[in-house]
């Protein structure tokens, strides 16, 4: 037995590894739709924008159990069954944390001069090329910051996960669920290693995210010329 397993226990290590895997997979699932949605929200003048804003931000403020319940209904209606699997935990974490990615990315795009895509268009660039070469590269700090923030939120996801994925050891028991299980246990097993792991991972992600977001909002990406 290694020193690490002595301190944390194999169940704890499994929960930590699973949490990292789930939150990373959640980020992979959410990043494309999240960035696209954030780009649209930052630039559109559509009347639908307020509705889309409310829908995308709702998981941020709704009780996670309610989000989980809505997700349960959605997942049940799918032609394939992923309820109470690792994938359900991934989707739960993605839905709950994607608003943070959207908010941060959108803020980063909004500080970019809105005329730059017009310049690209006059130079013959398609909308996609303009996004790929101008908007997203200029907003990269905000996008990475948003990804880290969303990853940290996914790491701590509990309420929606337990509704749609249950609490299956090695399959869906992430760090928060392992802590909850340990607290419920009559043996009173120590949760300190799990708490330390969760706090350290989250703090690192948030610190990095804040640093990047601060650099973006200071105008590092905005056109500023010496005159």
């Amino acid at each position: 037995m290694t020193g690490a397993t002595t301190l944390a226990g194999t169940g704890d290590l499994s929960a930590i590894a699973l949490s990292i895997r789930v939150s990373c997979a959640a980020v992979v699932v959410m990043i494309v739709p999240g960035v696209l949605l954030a780009t649209w929200l930052a630039r559109t003048r559509s009347r639908c924008r307020p509705i889309v804003e409310v829908v995308t931000m709702a998981p941020l403020v709704m009780p996670p159990v309610v989000t989980g319940f809505i997700l349960l209904i959605v997942l049940r209606s799918l032609p394939f069954d992923i309820l109470f699997t690792w994938w359900a935990a991934v989707f739960a974490a993605a839905i709950v944390s994607v608003p943070l990615l959207i908010r941060t990315t959108r803020a980063a795009i909004e500080v970019i001069d809105p005329r730059l895509p017009h310049v690209a268009a006059t130079l013959g660039a398609s909308r996609l090329r303009s996004l790929r070469t101008i908007t997203w590269p200029l907003a990269w700090k905000g996008i990475v910051g948003g990804v880290l923030l969303a990853w940290a939120r996914a790491l701590g996801e509990f309420g929606a996960t337990i509704v749609v994925a249950g609490n299956i050891p090695g399959e869906t028991r992430t760090i928060p669920l392992a802590i909850w299980t340990a607290i419920q246990s009559p043996t009173g097993r120590s949760v300190v290693p799990l708490i330390v792991a969760a706090a350290a991972l989250s703090a690192a992600a948030i610190a990095l995210s804040e640093w990047l977001v601060r650099r973006t909002s200071k105008g590092g990406n905005v056109v500023r010329h010496r005159r």
Partner: peptide, 20 residues
Amino acid sequence: VPIADRGVGFVFQDGLLFPH
């Protein structure tokens, strides 16, 4: 006609180079 197909070269007031 879309902007990209108009065949115009636009020089904006402040130059608006791609800063990155």
